[in-house]
């Protein structure tokens, strides 16, 4: 079972990955966006770890809802409300159980991903976060490791796609040939989950 502390460690691991990859995210965003994805995510996840450290929530759902709220209020770009909605809706779907099974997390993440799709009006193949998150949520039913692989493959698969949402869509065909920054950071979030699961042996 995954308790609040597990979810706290997941968010901490995500913050560390975002921090390590911030320059890469910004470089990807410079090619087809406005070159602020790395710094925006860095600011957002720094706020998440600070808020979680100040008053650690007692349930998995509460950890994700607090993290989501922080992202919406601090990121400053479209990824704020999108990631905020992802974490908040996933957290809400987990309810107030003190610990949840990996299968419950898989189901809740599916709810969160659907909320992201609804908020942004995007679907699979539009070259967005969803291209990493949809396969990851699907594979999470199997294991954390498969979810990580699915998310990373999904992010890579955005390279030949033409963007149909967000600022990159204004580029039309010129968006082809670049990996989507949002799908890339989504894969980091799922990689952080797999790392956290592997560290305490709950990922199988």
């Amino acid at each position: 079972m995954l308790d609040a502390d597990f979810f706290h460690r997941w968010m901490t691991a995500a913050a560390a990955l975002v921090s390590r990859e911030a320059d890469h995210l910004t470089d990807l965003d410079a090619a087809i966006g406005d070159a602020d994805h790395g710094s925006n995510m860095l600011r957002g996840f720094a706020a998440v770890t600070a808020a979680l450290g100040k008053e650690p929530p007692q349930t998995p759902g509460a950890v994700l809802m607090l993290a989501g709220r922080q992202l919406i209020s601090t990121v400053g770009g479209a990824s704020g409300p999108l990631y905020g909605t992802l974490l908040r809706r996933t957290g809400k779907a987990l309810g107030d159980a003190p610990a949840v099974a990996p299968e419950q997390l898989a189901e809740a993440l599916g709810v969160g991903v659907a909320a992201v799709a609804q908020l942004g009006g995007a679907q699979a193949g539009d070259k967005t976060m969803l291209d990493a998150l949809l396969p990851a949520a699907e594979a999470l039913g199997t294991s954390f490791g498969s979810a990580r692989e699915a998310a990373e493959a999904g992010a890579l698969a955005t390279v030949p796609m033409q963007a149909r949402k967000g600022r990159a869509s204004y580029l039309g065909e010129r968006s082809i040939g670049h990996q989507d920054p949002g799908a890339t950071s989504s894969a980091l979030l799922i990689a952080a989950l797999a790392e956290t699961g592997a560290a305490d042996g709950s990922g199988a």
Partner: peptide, 13 residues
């Protein structure tokens, strides 16, 4: 972009 999405997510909250 983010102006639209931020207000929508605040209303959903």
């Amino acid at each position: 972009g983010s102006a639209v999405l931020t207000v929508k997510s605040m209303l959903a909250e």
